[in-house]
């Protein structure tokens, strides 16, 4: 226990110190935290509950737009703002900017959680690959619908209020928003997976029919789990909106083939259904992505495709799954003869 506490203390200290020690990597580290957040939330349904969603990016995009609408709509008419399509027309004060941020980020999370609550019961009638395709359709449809809503700027996208901060400080602020959310999420999941709720979604993953036959409220658990993951993805989306300053619906907000797939690859790489797997996977994947995107530009998608093929064919259980297989004792899998009476 003390060893664990020490490990977490070191990690938190490193998280806080990182943007000051390596200022030129702040943006890189901010994106890393984004990957950790989306990977951890994807694993809640995909790894722990056995529902492989390809549509979690829906909550990311919806979170971006909700964050933007709140941040702008608190002080200005959104339609006129997007019509002008540039924020010079409206001047945003520092206090308006921060108020928009403080209300917009949690607001986006709550709205996305509500969305998951409403669509969950519809989508959880689908199982296995049908659920994956259904949710993918949701994300694609949402992107298309939003790009046709002029009030939200249509296909042009939407510009966020300008930050009153110097860009270098803004970067650090965004980094800490992501990192803070990521640390809260990790702590939450550490507790969540230790409760009966965590065990119930594991049971649904292993055999949903058995879980029903044992009287577990399967739909209730599935919907709440998806809603919780949507809250965190939505908040991450809203932070991204503030980070990007300007974003558009199809390539940035509802980016199904980029972040929507990256989050799945991160989890597969690290190991599904484990607490640390998505975190480790996100780190490995982000480094892989930066290296290939920088050094073999043009071939980066080929390299990514190759990575996915190698994981799926040879390392289906990811790094943590591999360790569990070769070192079961580390995970408490053992024959224990102590205390038996029969």
């Amino acid at each position: 226990m003390t060893k664990n506490t020490l490990l977490y203390a070191v990690l938190v200290a490193a998280t806080v110190a990182a943007p000051f020690l390596f200022p030129s990597y702040t943006a890189f580290l901010a994106t890393l935290w984004l990957f950790i957040i989306v990977a951890l939330t994807w694993d809640m349904t995909g790894g722990q509950m056995g529902y492989n969603s390809l549509g979690n990016i829906f909550f990311y995009g919806t979170g971006m737009y909700t964050g933007a609408v709140i941040a702008i709509g608190l002080y200005f008419p959104v339609g006129e703002w997007t019509d002008a399509s540039r924020s010079e027309v409206f001047s945003v004060t520092a206090s308006q900017y921060y108020t928009g941020m403080i209300i917009g980020i949690p607001g986006a999370g709550l709205f996305c959680g509500l969305c998951a609550f409403i669509i969950g019961p519809l989508f959880f009638g689908l199982r296995g690959p049908y659920f994956a395709i259904g949710t993918l359709g949701l994300a694609i449809a949402a992107g298309e619908i939003v790009s046709n809503i002029e009030w939200l700027g249509g296909g042009q996208g939407i510009s966020m209020p300008h930050s009153p901060l110097h860009p270098d400080f803004e970067k650090v602020l965004i980094y800490f928003l992501y990192a803070g959310l990521g640390v809260v999420l990790f702590g939450f999941l550490r507790w969540f997976y230790s409760t009966r709720f965590g065990a119930a979604i594991n049971a649904i993953r292993d055999d949903e029919e058995k879980a029903e036959a044992m009287g577990i409220h399967t739909l209730r658990y599935k919907t709440i789990t998806w809603a919780i993951s949507a809250v965190f993805v939505g908040m991450a989306g809203a932070i991204s909106a503030f980070q990007l300053i300007h974003f558009e619906p199809l390539e940035t907000a509802y980016q199904t083939i980029n972040l929507g797939i990256f989050m799945v690859v991160c989890v597969l790489l690290g190991g599904k259904g484990t607490l640390w797997g998505p975190v480790i996977g996100a780190v490995l994947f982000h480094v892989f992505k930066e290296v290939t995107w920088n050094y073999i530009l043009g071939g980066q998608w080929v390299a990514l495709g190759l990575l996915i093929v190698i994981i799926v064919v040879f390392f289906q259980d990811g790094l943590m799954g591999y360790l569990k297989h070769v070192r079961p004792g580390w995970f408490g899998i053992k024959v224990d003869t102590k205390g038996a009476t029969s």
């Binding site: 119930a200 594991n202 993953r205 292993d206 055999d207 879980a211 009287g215 577990i216 409220h217």
Partner: peptide, 24 residues
């Protein structure tokens, strides 16, 4: 036979607590 394969025996037992007696 249906059990929860990826969970250990104790976890299998604990999730089988009577859910009629458990609130959300």
């Amino acid at each position: 036979t249906r059990i929860y394969g990826e969970m250990n025996c104790v976890e299998n037992m604990l999730i089988s607590l009577p859910h009629r007696k458990l609130s959300i």
